[in-house]
């Protein structure tokens, strides 16, 4: 055993140095910096123009007042500011809005969980099955996206109508799950497909049965795929208005419908903006909480 210690004492430190210096890399030169800037300029401009600017406009709109014929009153009238907290007061003054918010989050959560439950086995099957059928199966997953979303929802109306399930919360969930399932399958599949099969063999070799291998190896390694798939389902479901409108009853409206109504039917842009901002804030808060709960611990890729 003397030799182990000799070896660890003399060789290992050298090895650590090598890896560390490789990881540290070299600092980029001035030319490289310029290049980075030039490369990131177009997307930055795009995001500024089409994401940040409209978001700021919406923040301002949420404090403005409804104009005489819909639209918005100017911010300044006769040298006086017309800005107010009216829309926010309205939102927090009625339980109905909080209820719709809550219901939307419940629907989104249920949809996400159902998608996860359906997508995981399927993604696992595609990822671990024969290489020959893989591309075909992935294509089949994506294929529904090739036809128009509204047409597919109408198809569900034809299916659910005779079964007397149309205009129920059940129909809304069915539609939501159906539309968003591919967005759960794809990230899961991409993740599962990248797993090194040697890890499962190693686990088996060391005494792990099939279930243990799944719980201890496959599932923990697939969590990044689970998170991104969940985000891709959860967030769009929160904003979705077409499905509840077409498949749901009058009591099944969600925030998406509410926002759409403010802009298109009630012409109450300030309230619509307020709802949008609060929804965005809620999603960001949730994302932050999720990121915090699953914060990368040392060494996890």
């Amino acid at each position: 055993m003397v030799r182990w210690s000799e070896w660890a004492g003399t060789v290992a430190p050298g090895f650590i140095c090598v890896t560390e210096s490789r990881q540290a890399g070299r600092s980029p030169g001035p030319g490289e910096n310029l290049q980075k800037w030039l490369v990131s300029l177009p997307p930055t401009l795009f995001l500024l123009a089409f994401l940040v600017a409209p978001a700021l406009l919406m923040v301002v709109a949420s404090f403005q007042q409804v104009g005489d014929f819909g639209g918005l009153l100017p911010v300044l009238e006769n040298g006086q500011s017309t800005l107010s907290l009216e829309a926010y007061r309205f939102f927090f003054g009625d339980w109905i809005y909080a209820e719709i918010f809550l219901r939307s989050f419940l629907v989104a959560t249920a949809t996400t969980l159902l998608c996860l439950l359906l997508a995981y086995p399927l993604a696992l099957l595609i990822a671990t099955g024969g290489k020959r059928h893989r591309d075909l199966l992935v294509l089949l997953v994506i294929l529904p996206l090739a036809s128009n979303f509204l047409i597919r929802i109408y198809a569900w109306m034809i299916v659910l109508g005779p079964a007397e399930l149309l205009y129920t919360p059940f129909a809304v969930i069915v539609g939501m799950v159906y539309v968003h399932l591919p967005f759960m399958i794809l990230p899961l599949y991409t993740n599962l497909e990248s797993h090194d099969p040697a890890l499962l063999e190693a686990a088996q070799d060391l005494g792990a049965g099939a279930w243990t291998r799944f719980w201890r190896i496959t599932l923990p390694l697939s969590l990044p795929g689970v998170w991104s798939g969940s985000a891709l389902v959860f967030i769009p479901v929160l904003g979705m208005f077409a499905i509840p409108e077409l498949l749901g009853g009058t009591r099944d409206i969600l925030i998406g419908n509410l926002i759409k109504e403010q802009f298109l039917d009630n012409r109450d842009w300030p309230l619509g903006s307020t709802l949008s901002i609060l929804l965005t804030a809620a999603v960001l808060l949730l994302a932050w909480l999720a990121a915090w709960a699953g914060r990368p611990r040392r060494g996890r890729a």
Binding site: D196, A198, E201, A202, A203, D205, L206, I217, L221, A301
Partner: peptide
């Protein structure tokens, strides 16, 4: 007898260390 029941362990060429475990 399946691999997990054999008193035989393997050191793999790629090591196959579990990346999510210390």
């Amino acid at each position: 007898i399946p691999a997990e029941k054999r008193p035989v362990h393997t050191v793999f060429q790629s090591y196959a260390l579990f990346p999510h475990m210390t």
